[in-house]
């Protein structure tokens, strides 16, 4: 294969721009490896001369941080499972089953999609206050369990499933749920994986709902937890950066595993939030 000179030059130029673009990440990583006294040394030591990795991360990972991390992990996993289940049920109903009022209901869902989430925030809070769901993880999981974007996305995938498969399920005497669970859902597994990964990332990163609906520090998620760092350790930036790295790490792992799905999912029609 002939190498294209202009393509090589552009690759180098773009690589330089790319490095510049992720410089904040590199700085964060490097600062989290250093003793505090070296963090603001200038010129910047991108590769630390003194390493303090183990001490920094050990300090961060002792105490409350572990609890915040655990809270985030199980809330995110529970939310993702419930959300994907609820959305795939609805998506299947809207795309593969015929029932009266289906189109009207779908128009209602479309209309609700235009409502900015913050427009319903105050009454949501009042409702949860009345139901005693404020400052509970169940409340937080419920808030993120119903998403229109998920129903839209999975509906697109279901529409690609040939009706013959669904009919064959009926012929075999499978009920509606079994047809959905054992035939239709496995057929759109890549689509479900794509959406599940996106939902995981969005839930892990959710800041607004935990900020408003959680009060007790014991219940905090990682996003609220790293905000408390200043209070806990003063302005110790090496520790703050180690906390930030730890908060991003699961996302990087998930993204590394599902990179292709995430990018395909995002391109699929521009999914967001």
């Amino acid at each position: 294969m002939k190498l294209n000179i202009s393509k090589i030059i552009w690759t180098i130029v773009m690589a330089l721009i790319g490095v510049l673009f992720i410089l904040p990440f590199l700085w964060m990583l490097s600062a989290s490896f250093k003793p505090e006294t070296d963090v603001f040394k200038f010129p910047i030591e991108w590769i630390p001369t003194h390493w303090n990795v183990i001490e920094n991360y050990k300090t961060v990972w002792s105490g409350q941080f572990v609890r915040y991390y655990w809270n985030s992990i199980y809330i995110t996993i529970a939310t993702t499972i419930i959300n994907v289940f609820v959305c795939s049920l609805a998506a299947y109903g809207f795309s593969k089953l015929r029932f009266r009022g289906r189109d009207t209901m779908f128009v209602l869902v479309l209309a609700l999609y235009m409502v900015p989430p913050q427009a319903s925030l105050v009454p949501q809070f009042l409702l949860f206050n009345w139901l005693h769901l404020i400052d509970t993880h169940i409340g937080l999981i419920l808030l993120n369990s119903f998403s229109i974007i998920g129903a839209f996305m999975l509906k697109q995938f279901f529409m690609g499933v040939s009706n013959e498969y669904i009919e064959s399920g009926k012929m075999d005497g499978a009920g509606y749920f079994r047809t959905f669970w054992q035939i239709a859902l496995p057929l759109i597994r890549p689509g479900v994986a794509t959406y599940a990964i996106l939902r995981f990332i969005w839930t892990w990163n959710d800041y607004q709902y935990p900020l408003i609906f959680l009060k007790s520090k014991d219940l905090f998620t990682i996003q609220l937890g790293i905000r408390l760092f200043g209070d806990q350790y003063g302005d110790v930036y090496s520790l703050m950066m180690a906390g930030a790295v730890s908060a991003i790490l699961p996302l990087l792992i998930i993204f590394a595993i599902g990179q292709k799905q995430v990018i395909e999912g995002i391109s699929l029609g521009g999914v967001k939030g």
């Binding site: 700085w27 990163n205 930030a244 790295v245 991003i248 993204f255």
Partner: peptide, 11 residues
């Protein structure tokens, strides 16, 4: 994909 809180702290 990174958490806004973490990214904001870095900035």
């Amino acid at each position: 994909i990174s958490s806004i809180v973490a990214v904001a702290m870095v900035w």
